[in-house]
Amino acid sequence: MALDPSYLEYPHRSYGMDHDRYDWSMLADRKPVAWPDGKRLALWVNVSLQYFPLNQSGKPFAPVAGMTTAYPDLRHYTLREYGNRVGIFRCLQAFDRYDVKPTFAVSARLAERYPYLIKKLVARGDEIIAHGWHMDAPHFGGQDQAEEATLVKKSLQTLREATGQPVTGWLSPSKSQSSNTPELLVENGVEYMCDWINDELPYNFRTSAGDITAMPLSTELEDRFIMHANLHSESEYADQIKDAFDYLYAEAGDQGGRMLALSIHPWMLGQPHRIGKLEEVLAHITSQDGVWSASAGDIRTAWQAAQ
């Protein structure tokens, strides 16, 4: 018994990362970031508006929070639809009540299907970023390049037409990428992507088509992750987000600007028994003067200016 000898060879064992996408650096070692008006913490509330097709193929892996039963999975289809019909309007009220500026990551297929909702968001003046074609159209390693190129192009085209916005941000379905995704995004005019969760501030990411900004959208602090994957209670969700905010807000006092990236889903937090916890969290965060609630694009711009 033995493994192939190459298993004990380590071709990337040298300084920095084992790839050339970004430089190795520790958050605490970087030049402190100053947010506009001397604010300590940038609050990025990212609302995913997702379309999960009933005829899910689940290839090469099932979308996070997708269909789970045999066809037709009316149960999960409609639970996710609830967010786009009902939950979103509760979320919007909560944002307005606490003067929080959300960013919406939208499945392009949703924009085609529900123009009312898109018009509503556009009229509010909120930033819309692309969330892929739909949740069952993942980007993944080994994907046919032409197929993926078409997916990126038609997603952005559809959303740009539907919103009239330049749409310069991107969140992949299930935060999954192929090795070509960053190049395709740059080639299609995307300036930042939210899929890499290895940091708490934006950082520069290299592609063969030019640089793009990585905007880490925390999975650990996501409503779906805490309540749906970990099955923690609504109260626990609120406690965890408040603890995270308190810690980052204090750390920002010593080390320079911090970013709290909250990924939320109206199908999760928009339920009547959960919306109060979103309100509780937003009330807690916005009670501090040093909080800057901004869109993802504005946070990226401010971060770039601080470099």
Partner: peptide, 17 residues
């Protein structure tokens, strides 16, 4: 997930950064 599994990788890289 197929390589690159950026969620798994990014989760760990966060620890160092």
């Amino acid at each position: 997930r197929p390589v690159p599994d950026i969620s798994g990788y990014g989760t760990r890289d966060y620890g160092n950064r």
